[in-house]
Design a binder for these strands. Structure first.
Lengths: 225, 225
DNA sequence: GTGGCGTTGTGTGCGTTGTGCTCATGAGCC
DNA sequence: GGCTCATGAGCACAACGCACACAACGCCAC
């Protein structure tokens, strides 16, 4: 699992912010910061010199906008910006940013997305032949962090969500809704509500237990993240 | 909800394939084909002239590779390619392709992803301010079509259907209902229910094995798609 | 050759069991 | 004190396995 680290170039006009982001990257398993830039010109030069796998790019730079140089960097780009205008976001994502993080953000938001990117990167790094399913799995891994587990979805409580995820993490293998209900103390119906959310967002793998008569029971397995 | 259509440029070296893909695009609500190109040079020129919102790009072009011009097109790119090498796929996705469809594919695969792209596009087109949740929702919409939800028929489970298709894909040649039942864990009756559905919809080829006494056994062979 | 018979796998009604939805209730938050 | 919102109970139905009727072959006697 431990292949060579993903080489990251951090770009932000504010050198303190850049240092902060770099520290987040360094703190994430499988990542290494290879450089830091504060202007678009520097970013382009360093990207060409260092050939990073990923660039953390700010939208607001002193010489030009981040989205202007996005295509010229020659590597994957994760936008980190305070630009909330949807046109700007759409432009950046259409131009090829793999993700878009709005400043300010807690460290976990960036780290989770880095982890997701790493999983995506490694899934496609095996060098083997792929089918459509393999491509889709990789893309889904990339999007896994986009719906945080402690989500603020309608009718769902972050506390309960956290408790259920904790049970799934601790479980050695697949568990049923009833197992989760008993372990957390919530009712079966509530456990199923949260578990089906997690399955829909791809955080857990859903399998069915056959063999007994009656409708098959759902088994949930945590997929990390 | 019906804003102006998404303008698409179709690029494929084979003009028949390009025409086919263009017909898929035209058949999808909210999309309009603004041009067709067969070489990388043409694609670049037409992209600059027409300013499409989305480019359907083939990897294999007579003058250069699709991923080479991916960054220079100035619009969102959906890769349509037969290149199964994971390095190529990773390169293209890192360079900014919003999706990657492996040829050959049934029309539904492309159309579903186009619809997903339209949802993504419109979610970010409102022009309003966004928060992180809004960005994530848009990205999630883009990935919605990537998990092929197999069946919506009454009394059939998508999960079971997926499991059975997986066995059929993995099988080197034709398998019987009992083989599928043992491999997945479902009963023979259930396996036969799903297999006969697949056969009726034309996803598997059904052959009969004679020679032994008794009723001939059905053998199922995956047909791709 | 042909019709009856045994054999083997297929298809379907039925009971069973778990899921997901709706609605009313109790816990927080102004 | 009214409001929202997550939870639990109850219920409709979804999706299995089981068992049996039936279908489609090979075999053999005539």
């Amino acid at each position: 699992m431990t292949t060579e680290p993903i080489r990251v170039l951090v770009v932000d006009d504010d050198f303190r912010v850049a240092r902060l982001h770099a520290s987040y990257v360094e703190a994430t398993d499988g990542f290494a910061v290879v450089g830091t830039a504060h202007t678009a010109a520097d970013a382009l030069r360093m990207a060409a010199d260092l050939g990073p796998d990923l660039v953390l790019l700010d939208e607001y730079l002193p010489d030009t906008n981040g989205s202007e140089i996005l295509r010229s960097l020659g590597s994957a780009v994760l936008m980190v910006s305070a630009a909330e205008d949807s046109q700007v976001v759409r432009q950046a994502l259409a131009a090829g940013a793999v993700n878009y993080v709005l400043k300010p953000f807690p460290p976990s938001v960036l780290i989770e997305r880095l982890v997701a990117f790493a999983r995506f990167w490694n899934l496609l790094g095996a060098g083997a032949h792929l089918d459509q399913t393999g491509v889709d799995r990789a893309l889904q891994a990339l999007r896994m962090a986009d719906s945080p587990v402690a989500t603020a979805r309608k009718g769902r409580s972050p506390v309960t969500s956290e408790a259920i995820v904790e049970v799934l993490r601790a479980a050695p293998d697949a568990v049923t809704a009833v197992d989760v209900a008993e372990a957390t103390g919530v009712s079966r119906a509530t456990a199923q509500r949260y578990l089906s959310d997690l399955a829909r967002d791809g955080h857990v793998r859903l399998t069915l237990r056959y063999g007994t008569t009656g409708r098959p029971e759902h088994c949930f397995e945590w997929l990390g993240g």
